[in-house]
Amino acid sequence: TETRTFDSEEEAKKAQKEAEKQGRTVTITRRDDRWEVRFD
Rank of each mutant, 00 (worst) to 15 (best):
E11T: 03
Q16F: 11
T3G: 04
D40L: 12
E9F: 15
Q22M: 13
G23T: 01
A19I: 06
V37W: 00
E18N: 06
I28S: 01
R38Q: 09
G23R: 02
W35L: 01
F39I: 15
E11H: 04
E2S: 10
A19N: 03
T5K: 05
T29E: 09
T27S: 09
V26T: 10
T27N: 05
V26R: 00
A19G: 09
T27F: 07
D7M: 12
S8H: 04
R34V: 15
R24P: 02
T27Q: 07
E2K: 08
K14D: 11
K14F: 11
T5I: 15
E2N: 10
R38V: 12
F39A: 05
A12I: 01
R24Q: 13
F6W: 02
Q22A: 12
I28Q: 01
R4G: 04
D33S: 08
V26M: 03
T27P: 01
E36K: 01
T1S: 13
R4N: 05
E10S: 07
D32H: 11
T3R: 05
K17Y: 13
Q22T: 09
E10V: 09
F39R: 02
R34S: 08
T29G: 05
D40Y: 13
T29Y: 09
F6V: 03
D33L: 04
T5R: 05
K13G: 04
V37Y: 01
E20R: 07
E9L: 15
E18A: 10
D40I: 13
T3P: 07
E2F: 15
E18Y: 07
T1M: 12
D33Q: 08
G23K: 03
W35S: 00
K17T: 11
R30A: 07
E11A: 09
T27C: 07
D32V: 05
E2Q: 10
Q22S: 11
D32W: 05
Q16E: 06
G23P: 01
R34W: 09
T3A: 08
R4T: 08
R38P: 01
K21V: 07
E36F: 08
R34P: 01
D33N: 13
E10H: 07
R30G: 04
D40N: 11
G23D: 03
W35Y: 05
T1E: 11
R38M: 09
E11L: 06
K14G: 06
T5M: 15
A15P: 00
D33R: 03
R31P: 02
R24G: 06
W35P: 00
W35Q: 00
D33F: 04
E20G: 04
F6D: 01
R38F: 08
R24F: 15
Q22F: 12
A15F: 15
S8N: 10
Q22W: 11
D40F: 12
A19P: 00
D32P: 03
K17D: 11
K21L: 14
T1L: 12
E18C: 07
A12D: 00
W35N: 00
F39P: 05
T25V: 13
T29F: 10
V37E: 00
D33C: 10
T1A: 12
G23H: 04
E20P: 01
T5A: 06
E9N: 03
R38K: 11
S8R: 04
R24I: 15
V26H: 02
T3L: 13
T27G: 02
K21N: 11
E9D: 03
K13P: 00
K13Y: 12
A15D: 02
V37C: 03
K14S: 10
T3H: 07
E11V: 03
K14M: 12
I28M: 05
A15T: 04
V37S: 01
R38N: 08
T3K: 06
T3C: 09
K21T: 09
K14I: 12
E2M: 11
S8K: 05
T29L: 10
E10Q: 08
E2Y: 15
I28L: 06
D32L: 07
R31L: 14
R31Y: 12
K21Q: 13
V26N: 02
E18V: 08
T3E: 04
S8E: 03
T1G: 13
D33G: 15
R34G: 12
R24H: 14
E20H: 07
E36N: 02
Q22E: 14
G23L: 02
A15S: 05
F39T: 06
D7Q: 09
R4H: 11
K14Y: 11
T1F: 15
A15W: 14
S8A: 03
I28Y: 02
T29D: 04
K21H: 10
D7N: 10
E2T: 12
R24Y: 15
R24W: 15
Q22I: 11
E20Y: 06
W35D: 01
S8P: 00
E9K: 04
E9R: 05
E18I: 09
R38L: 08
E10K: 07
R31M: 10
E10I: 08
D33A: 05
T25G: 06
I28T: 02
T5D: 05
A15M: 09
R38S: 11
V26W: 02
K17S: 11
T29A: 07
E10Y: 09
T5L: 15
D7G: 10
F6K: 01
S8D: 06
R30L: 13
T25I: 12
I28V: 11
E10G: 05
W35T: 00
W35A: 00
T25E: 08
E10R: 06
F6M: 02
T1C: 12
V37D: 00
T27D: 04
I28F: 01
D33W: 03
K17R: 13
G23W: 04
E2G: 09
V26A: 15
E36R: 01
K17I: 14
T29M: 09
D7T: 09
A15R: 02
G23A: 02
W35I: 02
K17H: 11
G23M: 03
R24N: 07
A19Y: 14
D33K: 05
V26D: 01
T3S: 08
K21D: 14
A15G: 01
Q16H: 05
W35F: 04
K13H: 08
D7E: 10
F6T: 01
G23Y: 04
R30F: 15
V26K: 00
D40E: 14
W35R: 00
F39N: 03
V26G: 09
E11F: 03
I28H: 00
R31D: 04
R38D: 04
K13Q: 10
E18S: 05
E18M: 08
V37N: 01
F39C: 09
R4M: 15
D33T: 06
E18H: 07
I28A: 02
F39H: 03
F6I: 01
E36L: 07
A12T: 02
R31I: 15
Q22V: 10
R31N: 08
A12Q: 00
K17P: 00
R31T: 09
R4L: 15
R38G: 04
E11G: 07
F39K: 02
A12R: 00
T1I: 13
K13E: 08
E36P: 00
V37Q: 00
D32M: 06
Q22L: 13
D32R: 05
K14W: 11
V26E: 01
K14V: 11
G23C: 09
S8W: 02
Q16L: 10
K17N: 10
R4Y: 14
R34M: 13
A12F: 02
K14A: 14
F6G: 00
D33E: 09
V26Q: 01
K17Q: 13
A19T: 02
E11M: 07
A15V: 10
E36T: 05
E10A: 11
T25Y: 12
T29V: 14
T29I: 14
K13I: 14
K14P: 00
R30P: 06
E10C: 05
E9W: 15
Q22C: 13
D40S: 13
R38T: 14
Q16N: 02
T5G: 04
S8I: 03
D33P: 02
T25R: 14
K17A: 14
R31E: 05
T3D: 04
E10W: 10
K21F: 09
S8L: 04
R24K: 14
E2I: 13
R34K: 15
E11S: 06
T29N: 07
D40R: 06
F6S: 01
R38I: 11
A19Q: 04
S8G: 03
R4Q: 12
R30Y: 14
A12S: 02
A15I: 07
T5Y: 15
T5E: 09
V26F: 02
V26C: 13
